[in-house]
């Protein structure tokens, strides 16, 4: 098991390295594009272009350029934006990451609890009225666009029913270290909004997995062993069904933390990674874009590595030692 974890982490590092190389090549070695002009932004003066060339070693060989870029990105952390002159890139990322992490972590807890409970209750009550009811709720939750739901929720709580929701703060973000209570209050609606979609997906996926599992031969064996239906569902079927839920969760979590929570962030005015990527794209702020892409990719890789380890904990068949 330990060697499995080590090997998985090593391969994650390798993947991250490859991603950094690829991202670098896309930005700096695309034929016909002058990276200096791109980095310097629109209508830059020749002096600025020269400064960019010197800083990124643009007249030096490709591997050196890659090294310099990584040096600025990860070790010296002094990559600066030329669009918003003088603003360092890395602090922007490290400032935005906790916002996104807070948003996604909280939402993940909500959607996992609601999704797993919904899936379990629906599967346990197959053929009764509650099963289609939950599944309909699931499909409705999946179908509501986040931007619409977010706007409507914001609108209702801030205007029409503001007297009832007086205790809810407006949009924006308060860091956890500043005030945990305000942090949670500010994030409550974003959490619920983001979790709605995923809770629906997870409830439906888990129910389908459970229903499949309950038709498996091992469930028949479990019944022949004299176990109660409840125990069969909760121990045997759920344990096997969780495997696919966990792999789904890893992908969703990674991509959300990597910037896919953009819509929720924009609707609720949360200055997270998604928002940062969005503004840097609009300004064509290349260093920031590159850092965001790198950050997003790394999070997805890290999340999938964690998922694989979890997978091995859940499913002994994965723990193959070569």
């Amino acid at each position: 098991m330990f060697s499995f974890v080590l090997r998985r982490l090593a391969s994650a590092v390798l993947v991250m390295f490859s991603i950094s190389v690829m991202v670098f090549l896309i930005f700096f070695a695309t034929p016909g594009v002058n990276p200096a002009a791109r980095i310097a932004g629109r209508s830059a003066s020749p002096q600025v272009l020269a400064q960019v060339s010197a800083e990124f070693g643009l007249n030096r060989p490709l591997p050196v350029r890659y090294g310099l870029m990584m040096w600025h990105l990860f070790f010296k952390q002094d990559l600066t934006s030329y669009v918003n002159i003088g603003v360092k890139v890395i602090p922007q990322i490290t400032g935005a990451a906790p916002v996104t992490l807070s948003l996604v972590l909280g939402a993940a807890v909500i959607w996992l609890v609601v999704g797993v409970l919904g899936g379990l209750v629906a599967a346990a009550n197959r053929g009764r009225w509650i099963d289609p009811l939950i599944m309909f709720g699931g499909i409705a939750a999946v179908s509501i666009p986040v931007f619409w739901l977010g706007q409507v929720v914001g609108l209702l709580t801030q205007t029409k029913f503001h007297s009832v929701f007086r205790w809810l703060p407006g949009s924006g973000y308060v860091s956890f270290t500043q005030s945990p209570g305000q942090w949670a209050l500010h994030l409550l609606l974003p959490w619920l909004t983001l979790a709605t979609l995923y809770a629906g997906v997870y409830a439906r996926v888990l129910r389908a997995e459970l229903v499949n599992a309950m038709n498996e031969d091992y469930v028949r064996t479990a019944r022949a062993k004299g176990l109660s239906e409840r125990r069969i569902l909760m121990r045997h079927a759920l344990r096997c069904s969780l495997i696919s839920v966990v792999s789904l969760f890893g992908l969703d979590f990674g991509s959300l933390v990597g910037g896919a929570a953009l819509l929720t962030e924009v609707v609720f005015g949360l200055p997270g990674i998604g928002m940062l990527t969005d503004t840097s794209l609009q300004n064509l702020d290349l260093p920031v874009i590159m850092a965001c892409v790198m950050y997003g990719a790394f999070f997805i890789v890290a999340a999938s590595a964690v998922v694989d380890v979890l997978y091995a904990v859940l499913d002994p068949r994965v723990r193959v030692v070569k």
Partner: peptide, 28 residues
Amino acid sequence: DKEMQPLRGGQIGMIFQDPMTALTPVFS
């Protein structure tokens, strides 16, 4: 079911056709 459960596996044991799928894969 409640009254069958003590019989199943207790008084009456059962062996299945396909041993490859008859055991839950994730438990020892």
